[in-house]
Design a protein around this nucleic acid. Structure first.
Length: 493
RNA sequence: GUCUCCUUCGUCUAGUGGUUAGGACAACGGGUUUUCAUCCCGUCAACGGGGGUUCAAUUCCCCCAGGAGAUGCCA
């Protein structure tokens, strides 16, 4: 069988972790089977639809380098792939179901429906849902409604007796009594647009979808879809319901847990490789020990059988760890390009970087790389190079176990040693040795000498390594900052 | 309320009718280091509960509990 799967999001918001995970599972399954990955836009909710979210869908998949074989933009033999452009199709099939007696027109107002719902809740009735008020309208009654100008919806006639079973690759058979299925769901809304159930079933069938991999929240409606397939006389696809992605508290992952949109992660400086790798590992594993996967590897080794049943909690910390790992594995020249926008945003580098600036950024990567978890971390790490905010509190210069007098002496003598060494082009290790000797003289720890020097040069107790900082800053600026710091300590001693 | 699904360290997970229940993140503690990181080493930590079946159950069966999802002219 030629595998054809689809990712069919609704463009009503930014692409989030859960959606992308579904896309990835579909994509990897298709690739591993030598099948086709299809993108379909389910934009039937005209109220919540936004242009921005549609664009975000394309941007996100592009960024992750997940290419769809058929779909919007790229086309294909089963198009159009945007449901709003298939409008007539759904109407036609819905009306056919009415003709066949499998569905019926309903003229109930939203108000009446709401009233019915409230009454059911008040009565604590087990039975909830539509009361099938319009299920058996006579032609005369229908004509009355039509004359009154009421736009009907089309509802599916769900059998009241019997039960319906569908098979899920992961869960096995799932059976529901027909009387427990939401009674007579709407297939075609009064605005003529289809609901998910109708559009999804028609399109999956028309597009030759072989496997439906979607979130587990669809399990309860599985039997309903089977009834729809039967009503049309079509063969249902193979189902595989994916475990949901949850937040720390066990609830469906949402904004209150933190960032959920891929766009947010991208903005903060997460790499597509890291997102792709980690997100795939929520609800799937190869062997319990392999953690690093390239996209290409996943395209080969992904197996549907390895998908878990239980929902998984999205661990921001682990994603961050993955991202750090990927940053460290990235070549410096590419990393420099990735960091550039953040440095420009901070005003450190001009919008149109000069060759010197580019070279500088590239040189930053060595020391900065080990210290970044997300790309935006490069800004605070390198700020000392681009803006000068000297530390004026003498206490900051004083290392543990030292005091202000010793610190002042260490800084002054250390500066002399350091500048002399730099001038004479001495090896770093030689200078370090001399500074260490100084610390012995002063009877303080090595850091008692290094800390004031480092604070003077980098304006911070947390910094890149000393000699990296000096190299990046240049000898002149280094000297100036050291002299300045000596004054600060003298004034306060 | 009703229906459906799920249940191994805090989290992601591996695993088997007999294992010291393995790995990773996190946390904690060390080591390396001039700070911060990186890196290395170590510690803590799990089979939801109760019944069966069995010589033996984390593993098979049943019940319960807990969690999640559905119950929309949202998907």
């Amino acid at each position: 069988m030629d595998v054809r799967v689809r990712y069919a999001p609704s463009p009503t918001g930014l692409q989030h972790i859960g959606g992308v995970r579904t896309a990835l599972f579909n994509y990897f399954f298709a690739k591993s089977q030598g099948g086709k990955f299809i993108l379909r836009v389910e934009d039937t909710d005209r109220e919540r639809y936004t242009e921005e979210s549609l664009q975000d869908l394309y941007d996100t998949l592009d960024w992750l380098n997940v290419k769809w074989d058929e779909g919007p933009v790229v086309g294909g033999d089963y198009g159009p792939y945007i449901q709003s452009e298939r409008f007539e199709l759904y109407k036609k099939y819905a009306e056919k179901l009415v003709e066949d007696g499998k569905a019926y027109y309903c003229y109930c107002s939203s108000e009446r429906l709401e009233k019915v719902r409230q009454e059911q809740i008040a009565a604590k009735s087990d039975y909830q849902g539509y009361d099938r008020h319009c299920a058996n309208l006579t032609e005369e009654e229908r004509a009355e409604y039509e004359k009154a100008g009421i736009k009907p919806v089309i509802r599916l006639r769900v059998p009241r007796e019997g039960k319906t079973t569908f098979h899920d690759v992961l869960m096995g058979d799932i059976t529901r009594k027909n009387k427990d299925i939401s009674p007579d769901p709407i297939l075609l809304k009064s605005d003529g647009f289809p609901t998910y159930h109708l559009a999804n079933v028609i399109d999956d069938h028309m597009m030759g979808i072989t496997h439906v991999m979607r979130a587990q929240e669809w399990i309860p409606t599985g039997p309903l879809h089977i009834i729809l397939y039967e009503a049309f006389g079509w063969e249902p696809p193979i189902y595989c319901h994916l475990p949901m992605v949850m937040g720390k508290d066990g609830q469906k992952l949402s904004k209150r847990h933190g960032s959920t949109s891929v766009r947010d992660f991208r903005a903060k400086g997460y790499l597509p490789e890291a997102i792709l790798n980690y997100v795939t590992l929520v609800g799937w594993s190869l062997d319990g020990s392999t953690e690093f996967f390239t996209k290409e590897e996943l395209e080969k080794c992904f197996k549907m059988e390895n998908i878990h049943k239980a929902p998984g909690v999205f661990d921001y910390k682990k994603l961050e760890w993955f991202n750090g790992q990927y940053i460290r594995a990235t070549e410096n020249d590419r990393l420099a390009e990735l960091c550039m926008p953040y440095l420009q945003e901070a005003g450190f580098i001009s919008a149109d970087p000069t060759e010197e600036e580019k070279a500088l950024v590239l040189n930053l990567m060595g020391p900065v790389k080990e210290r970044m978890k997300v790309l935006s971390d490069c800004v605070p790490l390198t700020a000392f190079l681009f803006k000068d905010e000297p530390v004026t509190d003498p206490a900051v210069y004083i290392a543990k176990g030292s005091d202000i007098a010793k610190t002042a002496a260490a800084l002054e003598k250390g500066t002399a040693i350091l500048l002399e060494g730099l001038k004479n082009g001495e090896e770093e290790s030689v200078i370090e040795e001399k500074l260490a000797e100084l610390s012995k003289e002063l009877e303080i720890k090595v850091n008692g000498v290094f800390q004031p020097i480092r604070v003077a040069i980098t304006n911070s107790t947390v910094s890149l390594p000393l000699f990296d900082s000096i190299r990046l800053l240049g000898n002149e600026t280094t000297a100036a900052r050291l002299e300045r710091a000596i004054k600060v300590l003298k004034e306060n001693n």
